[in-house]
Design a protein around this nucleic acid. Sequence first.
DNA 1: TAAATAATGAACACCATGTTCAGTAACTAA
DNA 2: TTAGTTACTGAACATGGTGTTCATTATTTA
Lengths: 197, 197
Amino acid sequence: MDRRQAKTRKAVFQAFAELLEEKGYPDITVQDIIDRADIGRSTFYSHFEAKEDLLNVLCESIFEHAFSKHPGKEDTHDFSEKEGLKAELTHALYHLGEHRGYVKSILSSESGDVFMRYFKNHLREVFGRDSGPVPDGIPRDYAVEHSVCWFAETVRWWMDNEEYSPEEVTGLFWRYKVGEAESRRAHPGNGMKNGMP
Amino acid sequence: MDRRQAKTRKAVFQAFAELLEEKGYPDITVQDIIDRADIGRSTFYSHFEAKEDLLNVLCESIFEHAFSKHPGKEDTHDFSEKEGLKAELTHALYHLGEHRGYVKSILSSESGDVFMRYFKNHLREVFGRDSGPVPDGIPRDYAVEHSVCWFAETVRWWMDNEEYSPEEVTGLFWRYKVGEAESRRAHPGNGMKNGMP
DNA sequence: TAAATAATGAACACCATGTTCAGTAACTAA
DNA sequence: TTAGTTACTGAACATGGTGTTCATTATTTA
């Protein structure tokens, strides 16, 4: 990629992230972005179709990283499949936590919808692979949707509760995961890796 | 209230509902609304601050009705508290089902955020009153948030799955309600009033 | 019937959007 | 080093929705 293009893109994302920490997404104008990034108006439009496009690209890149296959992830088979799933979720939380500054802002307006949509799409892939227990007679995809939505909502909650670590949040979520509530009775002690405070 | 005002408001809401069935909320302009409602531009702005205001008022009125105290609701004490709660939820679903046409549309864009916020606010009041079982050591308000979010998401799902009745949806939701999963084991048969297909 | 209240609609200023284009700067490959 | 390509610039412009103003007309109320 041309060095000039990369420079421009980087400047735009940097400006966008900064602006998100200062005001809500709907209040940010294209003018704000190009002023902050110090680029020409036409340059912005040669890179992005519009402000919404920029948001989409940002969200996609966040989750691409958060759910990236990192070395050794697939090899977590000294643990059970369940532990591998929990590790994957915790890994994602670490990434999201790094961007708390502007993620909080994105979540607190219309743009939250966009963010959550991307988030849930990735989570559906993750939980779709999970072959853990599902209560008697309940469709698996309905159970998956429950895990997806509730994990996403848990993260939304976490963004305003910085005192919890990623491990703690995954542990708390896990206790609400459908199927786990019942199996926990049969195998006590399996529910959480780290106790909640 | 002045008959003229009432007439204008009604025309605006009617036009808004119709337009929502035709296109997404972001694509609807104030011009669309006043053309359809056949009122003057300044008239619209004397009733509503902006398009967003109209959406807020519409959402509030929907849930005011859906969660209204209707006669005999408080007297459901021939059933348990649990049955009263389920009846309240089912009642709300009947109301929401009546407006499926435009509710579906509201939910499928930015405006869904607004709708869900109002919905969850009302649900927090409802589930906050619920004193049912909560798993060992989990904060009650966290459990409440789970019921709130998952019921709201279930409705979102229901909007695209017309084949289920309100009773069936409440029953399905109930099986995922935290606390219920465990108590169901102790008291089998209490989980659902109507079996799912 | 008079006073108060509401609706009208054209006209207006405003502002963000997205496009165009001629000119300049930076890369690339021969 | 040079020629050719690609990217950035920034001013200018057309567009379109927004929200306000105000003199006029219609309706309600007392």
